[in-house]
Write a protein that binds this DNA or RNA. Structure first.
Lengths: 259, 259
DNA sequence: TAGTGGTCTAGACCACACA
DNA sequence: GTGTGGTCTAGACCACTAC
């Protein structure tokens, strides 16, 4: 046909359907691990066309309650115990205790963690990174790109950039595993004493490419976080560029009162 | 017809088109204030159906570079001169200079600002707030709820909660305008010296109600930020519960390196 | 191979903006 | 009014998953 419209103008049908499905999940009618009915079944059940169900499911995915995979369907997610990303995660004592920041936190939350190295080697520093490092754009730096998992699901990608003159004297940085305490511990071992870290957060919606890398629904919120590691000499010896699934973290910062 | 497919499998046509439009904006071919071509014009130009252009525009909107309004079209947004929400906005010197945190920042960015008081009076502290204040849930506190505008558009709602025993001794807190330097300056005037502020950020998607209050599209990203103001005596004398349009801010925090 | 989600078409009608 | 975006249909083919 081609006729639009059902009854309720004001709130579109696809949003009504999405809301109904989300409510079923929140109310426990659909439990974690359950499959959401397939799109064709929903088409029949609601008496609407496939396109409408499709839009509804986009909304349901945006709620972050389901995990959709091609050819398989949509499964109701486990509700991950949200984790605190506290500003004390860069304590020297954690590094001296052999724990890098990421592992220190996940352990604390009782979750399993895994790190996969995606790239390790030289790269041209992107303009924004080069500026933070005090280098010319395009200068060769050491780049280490990792994908972090918690409880088996990817939650964060992180790329560390380290000026080559710093990196070349620290052999462990060129291995997949930089050793106990992570790369910050190695930088300290080699005389780079940290004075402060500066983090910049930009929350936004994931692009398509990003959402596939982090196994998110397109349009899910992410946080683009970039951190400078500044030494007591005032030099930025590392910049870490990370993209994090927003619903997997809570950020906490303590700001000392100053004059 | 009904035939799908063009040439490039792997990356869908609608993403290619979205990327092309985004690049035109980033490259300055489409400048701030320009209208993006209408969907029907894009349909002709790219030789695809309306639905495909529609999906492409959803992606372009997700980039945050355009502002789309029904019946009007999509306009390229002004490139806001990075609105930094820096952790140094709570300097005493700003307050002594008569500027509250919010105004100190907007001024710095060369933007106009406006504050509208939505509520001012006693209220029962919500559970989460009461816990932060070290009170029993439901205890009466002073609540001040404001809506902040920048360049005429609402960007943030903020509700301050202050224990009644603190508030009752500070008459200015019971006025719409608490005077130069804002409520933190008044708290300091009355002997509450701040030691630190603790902020918790939770980025997520806006609910329907929130998106209408901040004039956002439903599903736009927001940041729920809650801040404790802690005195040198270790007491939390204020909790500020804020909801901010994520695309209007960049958050910056300095984290001192500690043992 | 059957079933699922992902992309796409070529139309339609509705609601909003502006002259 | 004309033109815009917003919703919806009833199909089609493709790609992935599981049996």
């Amino acid at each position: 046909m081609g006729t639009a419209v059902g009854g309720d103008r004001a709130v579109p049908r696809y949003l009504q359907i999405a809301e109904e499905i989300v409510q079923q999940i929140r109310a426990g009618v659909l439990k974690p691990g359950d499959m959401v009915p397939s799109e064709s079944e929903l088409t029949d059940r609601y008496g609407v066309s496939g396109g409408t169900i499709r839009k509804a499911m986009v909304e349901v995915r945006a709620s972050g309650l389901v995990d959709t995979r091609h050819g398989k369907g949509s499964m109701v997610k486990d509700r991950p115990p949200v984790r605190l990303r506290s500003s004390d995660r860069f304590r020297r004592s954690h590094r001296r205790g052999g724990k890098a920041a990421y592992l220190a936190e996940t352990d604390q939350a009782g979750a399993t963690s895994e790190v996969r190295m995606l790239y390790r080697g030289t790269a041209e520093a992107p303009a924004e990174i080069a500026e933070r490092l005090g280098l010319d754009a395009g200068t060769q730096v050491l780049a280490r790109r990792r994908l972090y998992f918690r409880n088996g699901t990817p939650v964060e990608t992180a790329t560390s950039y380290i000026p080559w003159d710093v990196a070349k004297e620290i052999p462990e940085l060129h291995n997949d595993n930089p050793g106990p305490g992570g790369i910050y511990a190695r930088l300290e071992d080699h005389g780079h004493e940290f004075a402060e870290f500066m983090e910049t957060l930009v929350p936004r919606l994931a692009t398509k490419a990003e959402s596939s890398e982090l196994a998110l629904s397109p349009g899910a919120p992410v946080v683009h976080l970039v951190r400078n590691a500044v030494t007591t000499e005032g030099r930025v010896v590392e910049v870490c560029d990370t993209l994090m699934a927003a619903d997997q973290f809570v950020w906490e910062y303590r700001i000392p009162a100053v004059d």
